[in-house]
Design a protein around this nucleic acid. Sequence first.
DNA 1: TAGATTGTTAATCGATTAACAATC
DNA 2: TAGATTGTTAATCGATTAACAATC
Lengths: 215, 215
Amino acid sequence: MSNKRENISMSVIRRLPRYYRFLGDLLKHGVTRISSRELSQRMGLTASQIRQDLNCFGGFGQQGYGYIVDQLYREIGKILGTDKRRRAILIGAGNLGRAIANHMAFETRGFDLIGIFDQNPNLIGQVIKGIPVQDSRGLEEFCSRNHPAVAVLCIPRESTHEMATRLTKLGIKGFWNFSHYDLSVHFPDAVIENVHLGDSLLTLSYRVSELERKE
Amino acid sequence: MSNKRENISMSVIRRLPRYYRFLGDLLKHGVTRISSRELSQRMGLTASQIRQDLNCFGGFGQQGYGYIVDQLYREIGKILGTDKRRRAILIGAGNLGRAIANHMAFETRGFDLIGIFDQNPNLIGQVIKGIPVQDSRGLEEFCSRNHPAVAVLCIPRESTHEMATRLTKLGIKGFWNFSHYDLSVHFPDAVIENVHLGDSLLTLSYRVSELERKE
DNA sequence: TAGATTGTTAATCGATTAACAATC
DNA sequence: TAGATTGTTAATCGATTAACAATC
């Protein structure tokens, strides 16, 4: 069943979390069964696409019946890796870093935030979500002891490249990158998930302008 | 020149901020001229795509020469609307809201943050980036007086739908939505830019798992 | 002029949608 | 069994890439 997945396209992968979110919501509302057609209407896409997407990973439905919400939810969770426990560290305890640490439910998504680092002496020692901010200089020792798999980068653009190089050497395999720096171009082999908030805001700007042009 | 743009595809639009970012960087480094080929290598895409993309909006290059960085940068800025002044308000002064208000350079992207709102009495009155947090109940009056065009939503999932309905009535045309709620499905006519941080983290989780599977 | 590089058309590739046989 | 809905193949649509004539 799960050996089907080879070369799943990015378009499909990026839809999975959304399916997961909608199914979780249905589950919470006590819906036990759903057809691709009904789910498609709720999500604003085609039933065909949903069936196509899900069948990249296996046949989770029953012909003539549909999908069992609870079962599908858990299957997608497994596909996404929410059942794993991966250690994550966060670099940069500024405004954004603190907000991410406090706000993000890492645990429900398969991650354990085990360390927060910064180089600013004023921030070192502060406790965020029960985790004390450590001096970045201690990264090497911390990583060799605790083996985090993933790093959340909330640092300025300028220091991102160097930090990523350093962390790659320490065994970090995945980056959740909030800096306005295109890591992916320079680290083609690492798993990099960029959150370019600035780009997102500019897209909004474009689309609002477009709206005005139409009027 | 700018009357060319009709039905630009989302794929193109989403690449524009990235071009803008790279060109800004070249500019800062004193590069005056660049060919589509060189830019493509730096950005990790094809020269063909760059030329194709830019020509959706006009012929900004010179045959045999390439593009003048400074000029192209400003053209794309205009396309994105960074030269406009749009009023924005932020709803929800929790962890995330505060971080966005403090961290985001709204000004350089065509937006002026003119108000911050929350319903929590402990937050009301606090000053964030020189802007005092106001009681959400005052939204109606504030909007009829100041006419903001865009709202940044940093509120819980549950209150998002109601708040968007309310803000739409107050003339808000665009939403920068940080809540885990799919506004776009329910407000098909509004301009909505979702930042689903949870989805992004789950995508990272999937891709890290994938990496392990391959080993 | 010769060389370089654009703008643009045509070819290819991939993703989405439609259709339908399989089957619960 | 009849009706419903999946899984899957085929058709369509759109986006990316290649090619090349136009031109600086």
